[in-house]
Design a protein around this nucleic acid. Structure first.
Length: 633
DNA sequence: AAATCGTGCGCG
DNA sequence: AAAGCGCGCACGATTT
């Protein structure tokens, strides 16, 4: 092992204004409760290479303060910058530093690359310098428990590798014409750093009440099921469930819809084991197996899932009652954001079961203990303001494909799906129009994602000829759909990638997946637009008279949620909704819709009756009592 | 005992 | 219940 190079506090200032790679080691991943153990710096222009050991709290504070004195224009280079910045308690934007995050460089070159430093070094520098250190460390020991000298050389090495990666990758990014997009993503990263730091408050009382009610509900439902079947079993196991329903209870098992007249599945999927012979999906159980046990299992699954959300959240909420979720800008194939610990992008809402397997089966409203968005609340005196885009992806499709009729549809100001349905199939009376509207929705989203005829006939329960006819009518009305899709597939064939309006590159070499490029352009193109909107909203927040009262708290693909003073919400709604239209980008406004309320589960459009909240609350209390009685009985 | 895969489902 | 895109997470079953 090489000797560690311990730096003096005074060495830190030598990096100011220069290109400096930073790597930190810490006592854990949770930056809001863990400590820095080391700060590695590599700045060849200043002749600095080494580590500040920050095990001493005073030294850590001193080192952080010195770093904060770096002048504007200092180029900080980090691998997964958000992590280190959280521990250093700084946002590079606030100090005028440039930031180069090497994971983002990699992601922009090809979103399929793994982002770990080991993998990056191997792919782009052809080495694995970490291995030696890891092998000389005590087996299965966390880095923060390593001997300090070993950790120091490891940390310094990571900083050096990060610097080398930037040297290698920045010219590649420039060559591909991606530098502008990279700078945008670095601005985005700074905002996400703010969002994570500020966090979102947990309503732990709601979580506890909801959990209690759901636990009882689960026991009650399970007992019902076991009684019906005649014995206990693990309903979570598809194997055991299949046996209980179709063998023990003798319910008729749904026929394989892909089987031919001889009852045998001759499709190309049959051998691949794609047909799940247990037949226990919720879709089958509720739509095809008409038996109360199907409903029971469906309710059990929903209840169990809600409980698992609550259990996870209980572990994740910090001691100050705040969630510090993690948003990853390099986590998806298309350029969307992903969220974890907790995932703030898949929180169950009040509306349940809109679709089962994408087949419309009617909306139902969840009672309060199932409306888990209520677990996220605004701080005292504040309110959540959620502004989302209407039909964002259809709008992006219209703009990218320049389909004249689709552009008219989205700028008409009408209900887009109904508008399309009426244009294609005419006014057939309210009942039939409703069906046509569902068709239109299924086809619109299906086409965007590359749905096949077979799938549509299955989804809409039509024969092949009818499904083909419906698609033909749709495509006949929107003449640019087919040509646009063909162009994208052609580009994939020719270049091995397609470019978004933003310049982002989506790569694919396998012809069987070229069709996914259409979805990537729409989904990812929308994501790049939302990120720009978020950057502007963040700037707006910081330009307010009292900026500490205005924060973004969540981003959900087509929605920006801010926390603003309750008294000021109407003005905020108006200004942010307008700002988010970003009309300057395409010359066409993205229509936005503001809603607000005291919790994420209780945001409604302006004008909705406040007594609605009290009404639901009472229903919750009643239902909770019912469950208590049910269980006791 | 731990890692990985398969299934299922929440969201857009 | 495969066929339409993109995620994160929990759990059972299976593999190492």
């Amino acid at each position: 092992m090489s000797e560690p190079h311990y730096l003096k506090i005074s060495d830190i200032q030598r990096c100011s204004g220069k290109r400096v790679a930073i790597d930190t080691e810490t006592t854990g991943l949770n930056w809001w409760e863990c400590e820095l153990t080391d700060i590695g710096l590599y700045c060849p222009d200043a002749g600095v290479s080494g580590v500040i050991s920050t095990l001493d709290y005073g030294v850590a504070a001193e080192a952080k303060a010195e770093i904060q004195r770096w002048s504007p224009g200092t180029v900080t280079i980090l691998h997964n910058a958000k992590f280190d910045y959280h521990f250093l308690n700084v946002n590079p934007r606030d100090y005028g530093w440039n930031c180069i995050d090497t994971t983002v460089l990699i992601h922009l070159l090809d979103s399929r690359y793994l982002k770990s430093l080991v993998s990056a070094e191997l792919v782009f520098l052809g080495e694995n310098s970490k291995r030696g250190y890891v092998e000389s460390a005590p087996a299965k020991t966390k880095i923060w428990n390593w001997p300090p000298d070993l950790r120091a050389v490891y940390c310094e090495n990571d900083a050096i590798v990060t610097y080398q990666l930037a040297e290698e990758l920045v010219p590649q990014i420039t060559d591909w014409g991606l530098w502008g997009l990279f700078e945008k993503d670095m601005q985005y990263l700074a905002i996400i750093l703010d969002i994570e730091t500020y966090g979102i408050v947990a309503d732990q009382e709601f979580m506890a009440n909801s959990k209690r009610a759901l636990d009882k509900r689960l026991v009650f439902l399970a007992e019902q099921l076991y009684e019906a079947v005649g014995h206990e079993f693990n309903w979570r196991s598809t194997k055991q469930l299949s046996k209980a329903l179709y063998d023990d209870l003798g319910i008729a098992k749904p026929k394989n819809p892909f089987a031919g007249a001889d009852g045998i599945d001759h499709s190309r999927f049959a051998d691949a084991g794609k047909y799940k012979s247990t037949c226990t999906s919720t879709f089958l159980l509720t739509e095809k197996v008409h038996h109360p046990c199907g409903e029971l299992v469906s309710a059990l699954r929903e209840t169990a899932l809600m409980i698992s959300f609550l259990k996870k959240w209980h572990e994740l909420v910090a001691t100050d009652g705040i969630f510090h979720s993690n948003f990853n800008i390099t986590g998806t194939r298309t350029g969307r954001l992903s969220s974890s610990k907790p995932n703030l992008q898949n929180v169950p809402s009040e509306v349940r079961g809109r679709f089962t397997q994408s087949v419309f089966t009617g909306d139902t409203t969840r009672t309060d203990e199932y409306n888990l968005r209520k677990a996220f609340v605004a701080r005292k005196g504040m309110t959540f303001l959620s502004v989302d885009y209407s039909q964002m992806e259809i709008r992006t499709f219209a703009i990218l494909s320049k389909d004249p009729n689709m552009l008219t549809a989205i700028t008409s100001g009408e209900d887009v799906h109904l508008y399309i349905a009426l244009k294609i199939w005419g006014d057939c009376g309210p009942e039939i129009n409703k069906i046509h509207r569902e068709w239109s929705k299924t086809i619109s989203f299906g086409l965007l994602y590359g749905m096949t005829v077979g799938s549509l006939q299955y989804k809409l329960n039509m024969d092949r000829a009818r499904a083909l006819d419906v698609i033909a009518q749709y495509k006949n009305y929107f003449p640019r759909i087919d040509p646009w899709m063909r162009e994208i597939i052609e580009r994939c064939k020719e270049f091995g990638y397609v470019r978004y309006w933003s310049g982002r590159i989506w790569r694919e070499e396998d012809p069987i997946y070229f069709y996914r490029g259409c979805n990537a352009l729409i989904q990812g193109g929308s994501a790049d637009m939302l990120s720009i909107a978020a950057i502007r909203v963040s700037e707006w927040c910081r330009s307010q008279k009292n900026p500490t009262d205005y924060h973004i708290v969540n981003l959900v693909h087509d929605e920006i949620i801010t926390e603003v003073p309750e008294w000021d919400v109407e003005r905020c709604a108006k200004e942010i909704a307008e700002l988010m239209q970003v009309e300057d980008i395409f010359g066409i406004p993205y229509v936005t819709e503001p809603k607000w309320g005291p919790s994420y589960g209780d945001i409604v459009k302006k004008g909705k009756d406040a007594s609605e909240y009290e009404k639901k609350k009472n229903e919750f209390e009643e239902q909770y009592e019912d469950i208590e009685e049910e269980v006791e009985a």
